[in-house]
Amino acid sequence: MKLVRYNQTAGRPNEWNALLSDPFSMFAPFFGDTCRSSSSSSTPSSVSWYEDDENYYARIEMPGVKKENLKVEAEEGILNLSYETGKSECETSGQCESKRFSRTLRVPEKTRLSGIEAKLEDGILSLTLPKVEEKKPVSIKIS
């Protein structure tokens, strides 16, 4: 007979509430957790936008997300990011339900959707969104 340590799970916060208040906090791998920090004490995962003359740039926090589990789709001024926990991840965490999350992001009007590039590094998704080339006036030579 063994004495087994009591695994406290009763105090677990409602995951849906956490998802609604801070969708991307759920990307963090979590376990049979006995505690979690509350969303209010930390800044919600954020998106930072930049631009230069050629492109817009977005940096999106996605801690714990693997490149192979992330899908980025662009349509009509909207960018859809979706993520599903893979099997290996589920084995590591000991929680074998696969989880899916998605988030939509409005992209600037002048973006050329076909040219968007994405890179995931250190839990940050960096997107480069090329601007549509503006039609410049053509000067006509008067003969």
Partner: peptide, 18 residues
């Protein structure tokens, strides 16, 4: 954000630092 769990040998704490 952080989460934690334990087993017979250790505590494991996971902290998100994107």
């Amino acid at each position: 954000h952080y989460s934690s769990r334990y087993d017979d040998e250790a505590w494991e704490v996971s902290v998100t630092l994107p």
